[in-house]
Simulated assay, not measured.
Amino acid sequence: MGKPTRWATDTGPEHSRWYIDRFRRMAAEGIDLSGEARLLDAMLVPGSRVLDAGCGPGRVGAVLHARGHRVVGVDADAELIEAARADHPGPVWLVGDLADLDLAAAGEPDPFDAVVVAGNVMTFVAPGTERDVLSRLFAHLRPDGFAVIGFGTERGYPLPEFDADLTAAGFRLEHRFATWDLRPWLPGTDFAVSVLRRPAGAVGGDPAPR
């Protein structure tokens, strides 16, 4: 892996365990944790191949798997991946850094129909690697595949920077919403859910990092 992520440097040593326990507790209480997955499922054909990037303990990928999709989840935090494997068998859960992601080397060479990046993942990657992360996600998508990325825009990654980075990575911005249930995005909104497309005729996108 490359530089430490903000998840590792900006949180305490017990943060991952707290995060795992928090979502286990919420699930036990019957709280709806499936909003992001419902949106992706509505956009996909049955049996699609989906990359859950920054999957954490697996709540999004698990729902997509249950709905019949083929899911690979990746997170830099080994403790979160261990929890995903324990709580949600079925998907492939892998430890990996999104900034130098190479799933072919991990035994997953096939491109993905879609990528989901939920849970403020883009604000937790290592500083200065945001464009690299987007480029690696682009590289793992099939032509005309799409990514849906949501994060708080006041958490250190301003939306104009994100838009410049997604364009540099090769993506085309298709839609933007204020929430995962598709409420309209307006200037000044502090959260953004962006739908990005890898154009069908786009060149590049080497699945292995250079």
Rank of each mutant, 00 (worst) to 15 (best):
P160I: 10
E161Y: 02
G150Y: 10
P158W: 10
D163I: 07
L166K: 13
L166R: 15
E154P: 00
R142H: 03
L137T: 11
R136F: 07
F151R: 05
P158Y: 08
A139V: 12
A147V: 01
G152A: 13
A139L: 10
L166V: 15
D163Q: 14
Y157K: 01
G152Y: 09
T153M: 01
E154A: 12
D165H: 15
G156E: 12
T153E: 09
I149L: 02
E161F: 06
V148Q: 07
L166M: 15
P160L: 05
G156N: 13
L137K: 10
R142N: 08
P160C: 04
F162Q: 04
D144A: 15
L137A: 03
R136A: 08
F138G: 08
P143L: 05
G152W: 05
A164N: 09
L134A: 01
E161N: 06
G145F: 00
P158F: 06
L137G: 00
R142F: 08
Y157Q: 02
Y157D: 01
L159N: 00
G152N: 12
E154V: 10
H140D: 15
E161G: 10
S135C: 10
R136K: 07
L134S: 08
H140V: 07
F151P: 03
E154M: 10
D163N: 13
P160A: 14
E154R: 15
R155Y: 11
Y157A: 03
G156Q: 10
Y157T: 12
G156P: 01
L141G: 07
R142Y: 08
I149W: 06
G150W: 06
F162D: 05
F138K: 02
H140P: 04
R136D: 13
A139M: 07
E154F: 12
P160T: 02
I149A: 01
H140T: 06
F146D: 06
R142E: 12
E154G: 00
G145D: 08
P143F: 00
V148M: 13
A164G: 15
I149F: 04
R142G: 10
D165N: 10
H140R: 14
L134I: 00
G145P: 14
F151Y: 15
G152I: 01
G156F: 07
D163W: 03
L166A: 08
F146W: 14
D144N: 14
R155M: 11
A139C: 12
L159P: 04
D144K: 01
L141A: 03
E154I: 15
A147T: 07
D163P: 02
V148S: 05
L159Y: 11
L137D: 06
H140Y: 05
F162W: 09
P158M: 11
A139K: 10
F146K: 04
S135Q: 12
G152R: 07
F162K: 01
D144L: 08
R155I: 03
P160N: 08
L137C: 14
